[in-house]
């Protein structure tokens, strides 16, 4: 397979510094609204702060890939005496839970690292330096990357079946 250079964008999460403000959720949802900054809704954010206040858990988690099927097993982490939620560290948009699904359409949300911005919005907005942005270049095999649109189509197919979605697309094509 051919090699290409890929920019790896990384956000380091220093969860110990998180004060639980949820500002990252607010700004992410505002940034991804159309038009930009026209609406606010943490439920549409691609970062969620998993919170269990009395247990001292404030854990920012980013929305990752859409998955059609849930894992066969579950994990529960205990770190420093704190028990995190089942699948607590997982980024997946998974049928087993509501996390990272658009509240209206149910379609998956995915962190796109604020494509086009020099520094992701949540990183800029978090004044407590919990989220720290880093970038590096890496040689990788050329591969097929799943885009947001594709993830959306996948999720539609899973929800309504391939035939229905294909029909819908065909109908739309005719309408145009």
């Amino acid at each position: 397979m051919a090699k290409v250079t890929k920019k790896v964008k990384r956000i380091k999460i220093d969860a110990d510094k998180c004060n639980g403000c949820r500002g990252c959720e607010i700004i992410c949802s505002a940034y991804h609204a159309t038009p930009r900054y026209s609406t606010i809704n943490p439920a549409r954010s691609r970062i969620r702060v998993i919170t269990n206040r009395l247990e001292d858990i404030w854990l920012p988690v980013f929305a990752g890939e859409y998955t059609a099927a849930e894992c066969l097993g579950r994990d529960v982490y205990v770190i420093d005496g704190k028990e995190y939620d089942e699948c607590g560290f997982c980024r997946a948009v998974c049928p087993s839970r509501d996390l990272f699904k658009d509240p209206d359409s149910g379609l998956p949300l995915k962190c796109d690292m604020c494509e086009g911005e020099e520094i992701p919005q949540c990183v800029q907005w978090c004044l407590n330096d919990v989220l720290v942005y880093e970038e590096r270049e890496e040689e990788v095999d050329e591969e097929f990357e799943i885009t947001m649109a594709e993830a959306g189509v996948d999720s539609l197919i899973n929800q309504y079946g391939l035939d229905k979605v294909a029909d819908m697309v065909a109908r739309r094509r005719k309408d145009r």
């Binding site: 505002a30 930009r36 900054y37 026209s38 609406t39 606010i40 809704n41 509240p103």
Partner: peptide, 22 residues
């Protein structure tokens, strides 16, 4: 518990002012 949108009339302008506040 809520998951509805709250709207800003002129969001980009609002964020510009928030930049100065930040």
């Amino acid at each position: 518990r809520g998951s509805k949108d709250v709207y800003l009339a002129r969001g980009a302008e609002f964020m510009n002012h928030m930049k100065a506040v930040t």
